[in-house]
């Protein structure tokens, strides 16, 4: 294992110390219990937007704490959900009397820990709603499994709900908006290499030099198929096709696009992929209203990418354009 770390057991906490040192103007970090809140929390007369999950997906979630996005993020150990008491403490630190909305990615650990945290909050009189992101089209959506995993729609949801909360929307309206976004966001990822959890010291799975995993999850979970590496054009055609056909997105639809790097992918390659995507969506008659290209929901040093499409309309685009001021996403401020 070759990593820029001191001791494997200190990775998460030392990284958060760095985040606090670099962005103290935007956020504060509590180390016991461990959570991150925006610098001006709690913000009066606003629903608190709270998310969290295992570390190793940076900038998700702590890098999205700040005005116009998350009020609090609750990081767990690498690829491990935070515990309910910490999620409760994070929620309590940012709630202002209009309740809190939890954004949860659909992994069994995250869902159970956030649900239990919500129960603890409600027992203490804090109003909590939760939305679960399950947008990974690589997984068959079935009542006979834990369901689809949460992927890039999480990033778009955090931005859009953060904006809507900033405008003063109430908890019920935010929860309804969140469900609408989750219903029309779809994602799929491809891994070129595995990644290594620092505490484990060896890769979570193995791929031969010429092999890729199509439909990979953000912790390296297996996807649809293990295939031979192919030209970027063919790969993007397969991935975009799977995402577009799933909803399906139709001729004339407006979309917001996230073309996401998994952590170890050069931007040069991401833009090369965007070039392919641009051609494909134009041919399908989709209108890309807004897009992000970069590393937003990563899997440590994994090389690969994921594509997220979200059906957009003027209301969502207007929310998207509202000011946002976080370590990883900022405009309009």
């Amino acid at each position: 294992m070759k990593k820029l770390i001191n001791r494997p057991e200190d990775v998460v906490v030392e990284s958060l110390h760095g985040l606090a040192a670099a962005h103290g103007d935007l956020l504060r970090v509590s180390f016991d219990p461990l959570f991150v809140v925006r610098a001006d929390a709690p913000v009066a007369d606003k629903v608190a937007i709270v998310s969290g999950g295992g570390s190793g997906h940076e900038p998700l979630h702590a890098g999205f704490v700040g005005r116009g996005m998350l009020d609090a993020a609750c990081p767990g150990e690498v690829f491990t959900s935070p515990t309910p008491d910490r999620i409760e403490a994070a929620t309590r630190a940012v709630v202002s009397g209009r309740g809190a909305l939890h954004i949860v990615k659909n992994y069994t650990g995250d869902v159970l820990n956030f649900e239990t945290a919500a129960e603890l909050c409600r027992a203490d009189g804090i109003e909590v709603e939760a939305v679960v992101v399950a947008d990974d089209v690589a997984v068959e959506d079935s009542t006979f499994t834990a369901g689809r995993r949460g992927l890039g729609t999480t990033v778009l949801l955090e931005r859009l709900l953060g904006a809507a909360a900033e405008r003063g929307l109430g908890l019920d309206a935010l929860a309804a908006l969140a469900r609408r976004i989750c219903d029309t966001g779809r994602s799929m990822g491809v891994a070129l290499t595995p990644c290594t959890v620092p505490a484990a010291g060896r890769p979570t799975f193995t791929l031969a030099d010429d092999e890729i995993e199509i439909g990979v999850g953000i912790h390296g979970e297996p996807g649809r198929e293990r295939a031979k590496l192919r030209p970027a054009r063919e790969l993007m055609e397969q991935v975009a096709g799977a995402v577009i056909d799933d909803l399906p997105f139709r001729d004339g639809d407006d979309v917001i696009v996230l073309l996401n790097g998994m952590g170890g992918t050069p931007l040069m390659e991401l833009y090369l992929l965007y070039n392919e995507l641009h051609r494909i969506v134009a041919a399908k008659g989709l209108r890309v209203r807004r897009r992000l290209v970069g590393n937003y929901i990563t899997s440590l040093e994994m090389a690969g990418f994921s594509l997220t499409l979200l059906k957009a309309d003027d209301e969502l685009v207007a929310l998207w354009d509202d000011p946002v001021l976080t370590p990883a996403l900022r405009w309009g401020c």
């Binding site: 767990g76 515990t83 309910p84 008491d85 650990g109």
Partner: peptide, 9 residues
């Protein structure tokens, strides 16, 4: 607080 994973909750 201490179990973690899915079995903690």
């Amino acid at each position: 607080r201490t179990v973690g994973g899915a079995s903690g909750p």
